[in-house]
């Protein structure tokens, strides 16, 4: 068990290091020099010496391996460098932009869970076959819809056609309704696909037949016996879902003009502000790897059947 633990943590760290290195090579070492883009422009009217001085101040004139280890040491201490375009530390930009995105993402996640449970429950309770198959095909539809288009359509329908959500100076809650929905619908798609498949699998198990033979109703079996067993495997896609939430937030914030990590990412891409982008990439990889690690380690605890299997092999 200890060996499994060490191996698993080591693998996570290795993936993080590879991601950091790849992000560094992709964004810092290769062309697309943000300092040049900002300070070489004619209206800045800087001499070559002054530019060289600025490059030295940012540490851009050092050899690549020295910059690599400097950046790595800085990242380990929580220093993500300077945004060339804004002229402030990246960590400061993150502090400002992370909270609104986290709020949007967690509300979107919550809404997605509610939506998922509704879809999965309806697809098992509704009696009419045509309606049931319509509900069951909803996740495939949700996956095929571009997030940005979904957001625009929601504005179109709820703000302009029905007049339900105000576009001009909405309240703090009203402002979040449509973005949260935009984020939730595509996230709910893979979740409900997995949940519905698991429910089908669990329903085929012998203990369900026993419960039914004892006279339990379909709904009772579903909630009391099936739900718990079917929900657990959805944990395995938690890490992927986090990435989807983050990517969804980038697009959603662009559609609704909200401030946050998404806006920061878009600005960074537009300005070739690679330090900002590298920080965002590495942080999101860190979150993904940690979530997966926690799920992997927690899973045997939540499902004792798996724990005993692991104990035997490890």
């Amino acid at each position: 068990m200890i060996r499994y633990l060490i191996g698993r943590v080591g693998q996570a760290l290795l993936v993080l290091m590879v991601t950091f290195t790849a992000a560094f090579l992709l964004l810092q070492a290769l062309p697309g020099d943000a300092i040049m883009i900002k300070f070489m422009s004619p209206d800045m009217a800087l001499s070559a010496d002054q530019i060289a001085e600025i490059r030295a101040a940012y540490g851009a004139d050092l050899p690549i391996w020295e910059r690599y280890f400097n950046t790595l040491a800085n990242f380990l201490t929580g220093n993500f460098g300077y945004s060339i375009q804004a002229g402030v530390p990246v960590s400061q930009q993150l502090r400002v932009n992370l909270p609104p995105t986290l709020q949007l993402a967690s509300l979107g996640f919550l809404a997605a869970i509610i939506l998922t449970i509704t879809i999965a429950a309806l697809s098992n309770i509704v009696g009419m076959a045509w309606l049931r198959s319509a509900i069951q095909s909803m996740p495939s539809l949700f996956i095929s819809v571009p997030v940005f288009w979904l957001g625009i359509m929601l504005i179109q329908v709820f703000s302009f056609q029905l007049g339900l959500v105000s576009v001009i100076s909405p309240g703090p809650v009203e402002r979040l309704i449509l973005p949260v929905l935009t984020l939730a619908i595509p996230i709910s798609a893979p979740l409900s696909q997995i949940l519905m498949r698991n429910i089908d699998e669990v329903l085929a198990q012998p203990f369900v037949a026993v419960a039914k033979a004892k006279g339990a109703s379909h709904t009772w079996v579903l909630w009391r016996h099936v739900a718990r067993n079917a929900v657990l495997p959805t944990l395995t896609i938690a890490g992927v879902l986090f990435g989807e939430l983050l990517a969804g937030a980038v697009v959603t914030e662009a559609v609704y003009g909200l401030n946050g990590l998404g806006g920061l990412t878009n600005q960074a891409v537009g300005n070739h502000d690679t330090a900002v982008l590298q920080a965002i990439v590495v942080i999101s990889a860190l979150a993904f790897v940690s979530i997966n690690l926690v799920v992997d380690l927690l899973y045997p605890v939540l499902d004792p059947r798996l724990g005993s299997k692991l104990g035997m092999t490890a």
């Binding site: 993080l16 991601t19 992709l26 697309g32 990517a247 697009v251 891409v269 990439v281 999101s284 993904f288």
Partner: peptide, 19 residues
């Protein structure tokens, strides 16, 4: 491959577009 999957696909695309 693992480290490519660790980064959300949109962020990965954006990083390559910057390059």
């Amino acid at each position: 491959v693992d480290s490519m999957l660790a980064v959300p696909s949109l962020l990965l695309s954006l990083s390559i577009i910057v390059l």
